Amino acid sequence: MAETQEIEELANKIACAARKSFLELFKNGERFYYCTFFTTGEGHAPSISAWSWEALTREATKQAIHSDRPAPEMADLIKWSYADSPYYCFGEENFADVYESFAKRPLIWTLENGEWHKELMLRLQAMEIALNMLDEEGLFSLNQPRDAICITVEIMPPEEINSQMALRLNNPSSPALQQWLVEAAE
């Protein structure tokens, strides 16, 4: 029971911070196709990243100027890269309470085998619940139809669990999810 309460409290804090960040981001009116919470295998507090079709065109053109690749090829390379997005760590200032809550949690690398995995899964579950909460509010259909955007919780570097969470967070027949599964999933 205590663990369920911990997960819910953490999920609520994450959702509150992410709601502020995504609402601010979505004011730009761009059509988003990818929004993610990303973390590490150590289960650090999540950050957000996102891609819109407009941002992808701008960034691919910009990066192509400084490389030997044409913009369309560059777009294919960065399309699902949380780190290459101009919206990497967007609204980070809204996550102060989340960072504080994660800092109060046990340090994963100090836990024994089964305990570190349990703690990591608790954190990932809280992130997934937070995204589900925002999705149920209709947040991800503000600038585009919901099936046109893939929402994810991702461990970096990528792990297989990323695909499992993406499948739970999105309609399985969503074109955006199907594209992410083919182009980016582990």
Rank of each mutant, 00 (worst) to 15 (best):
I155S: 05
Q125K: 13
L181D: 09
M121E: 14
L134Q: 05
Q144F: 09
M1V: 12
K13R: 13
L111G: 06
L134P: 02
N143M: 12
C150L: 06
A60R: 04
N132E: 03
E186H: 14
W109G: 11
I108G: 10
I78W: 03
P175T: 03
E8W: 05
C16M: 15
N113I: 11
E30I: 03
P46A: 00
R58V: 10
A103W: 00
R168P: 02
Q5Y: 11
H44V: 14
S101F: 02
E93Q: 08
W116H: 12
I108V: 15
I108H: 08
P70D: 15
K104P: 11
R168V: 03
T152I: 08
S52H: 11
A83Y: 08
R105Q: 15
M121W: 08
A18I: 04
P157V: 02
G138E: 06
M1R: 15
T4Y: 12
A184N: 15
S174W: 03
A176I: 02
F90K: 10
Y88N: 14
N170T: 01
E9V: 14
I161L: 07
R123T: 03
A64V: 04
N143W: 03
Y33F: 07
A64C: 05
P86N: 09
R19L: 08
E93Y: 06
E100H: 09
E115S: 12
E154Q: 11
E30D: 08
I48H: 07
A11S: 07
W109I: 13
A75M: 03
P157I: 02
T39S: 13
K62G: 11
R146K: 12
E137G: 04
R105E: 11
L122K: 14
G91H: 07
S101H: 00
A148W: 09
A15M: 00
S101Y: 01
S141M: 13
C150N: 09
T110M: 11
L23G: 01
G138V: 06
E186I: 14
L169C: 05
N113W: 12
C35N: 08
M121P: 04
K27S: 13
S141R: 12
P172A: 05
A96T: 04
L131C: 06
S85Q: 06
R168K: 06
I14S: 02
L139D: 04
W53E: 06
W180M: 07
A18W: 03
F32I: 02
T4F: 12
G29V: 01
D68N: 15
A185L: 07
T4W: 09
D97G: 10
S141N: 12
P70Y: 15
N113E: 14
Q179F: 07
E59M: 13
I7M: 02
M156A: 14
G41D: 15
L107R: 13
P157C: 03
G41F: 10
M1W: 10
M156E: 15
F22P: 02
Y99L: 14
Q164D: 14
K62C: 14
A15T: 00
E160P: 04
S173W: 08
L139W: 04
D147G: 05
